[in-house]
């Protein structure tokens, strides 16, 4: 019983981590806090559903297609919305308001295309079990945890060892200096939006079989943001730790309250962290702009 909760909490936590990483990647490189990040998850979930219910029965293929489409949406959000605002001298508050626009319009587009009813993924995806010798755990949870950790490791390697990853870290450190060394910030920030959108797309398809896919699933973005701030906002490692921690808290806490109050746990944690320890549990200092 406890093992099941532990595993499913860990799995949901990994999904939070993926979305939290998306927040952090975009914020660190371009300074944009995309409030609409959760809506990219929705895009991933719904696209994944369509792929698996019409095109193919291969779940992995649906993950890839959803990743590509959500990534494209992320890329377009930068190219059509955030970059033009920043280029014309818009301030953070204008970018923030524009991201609110994404938050309200994307779900409606989702509702128009997919309808307002929650859509269930085929049962065969979520019902398999994995035998671990002594015990059995849910195959879906196992897949989520495995895939999420694989993605996180790939990210670590990418940012640590590749030329592109290093350039992206340089942009995050100092957006002017990176240009002075020939890094085309605009291009790489666009790529980061693509990657970050792709991450949320994967999160959406992974989430679909556990719950369902629907136009209003984007509020998960708020929970993932809670994960990002618990870990220290803007810190990719912190995002992973925060996500897993909150996934577990929600899973165990959820057994104690009735289902309609379950969402209150993470929203409450977000507010509590903001009230009492805004730097997050890792205590990473937020960047201070004194200029």
């Amino acid at each position: 019983m406890y093992l099941d909760i532990l595993v499913s909490g860990l799995a949901v936590g990994c999904i939070y981590s993926l979305i939290a990483m998306s927040y952090s990647l975009i914020f660190r490189s371009s300074g944009v806090l995309n409030i609409g990040t959760g809506e990219f998850v929705m895009v991933g979930g719904l696209v994944g559903y369509s792929v698996i219910s019409t095109l193919t029965t291969n779940y992995y293929l649906s993950i890839i297609i959803a990743m590509v489409i959500a990534g494209t949406v992320g890329y377009l959000a930068n190219t059509l919305v955030f970059h033009p605002i920043q280029k014309r001298g818009g301030q953070d508050v204008h970018v923030l308001i524009a991201s609110i626009a994404i938050l309200i319009s994307l779900p409606q587009i989702g509702a128009l295309l997919w309808g307002a009813e929650p859509l269930s993924f085929p049962n065969n995806i979520s019902q398999g079990q994995v035998n671990l010798g002594v015990t059995q755990i849910s195959g879906m949870s196992f897949l989520i945890i495995l895939l999420s950790f694989a993605i996180m490791i790939v990210f670590q390697v990418f940012f640590r060892f590749t030329r592109l990853g290093q350039a992206m870290r340089a942009i995050a450190d100092d957006r002017i200096m990176s240009q002075l060394l020939g890094v085309n910030n605009h291009k790489y920030i666009a790529i980061i939006f693509l990657i970050a959108g792709g991450l949320t797309g994967i999160a959406g398809v992974l989430l679909g079989p556990i719950y369902y896919a629907s136009y209003d699933m984007g509020t998960i973005g708020v929970k993932a943001f809670a994960a990002a701030v618990v870990g220290g906002f803007g810190n990719v490692t912190g995002a992973v730790i925060g996500g897993i921690l909150l996934g577990l808290i929600e899973a165990f806490g959820g057994t104690m309250v009735s289902s309609q109050f379950r969402d209150l746990i993470l929203y409450g944690i977000l507010i509590a962290v903001m009230l009492f320890r805004p730097t997050g549990i890792l205590g990473i200092k937020q960047r201070r702009d004194t200029a």
Partner: peptide, 23 residues
Amino acid sequence: PMAKLGEIYFAMSTLAFNLILTI
């Protein structure tokens, strides 16, 4: 106390608070 935070944190926390209120 949240009002002392940067605008993005305030925006996100108040969004969470509105979701709580609806529930």
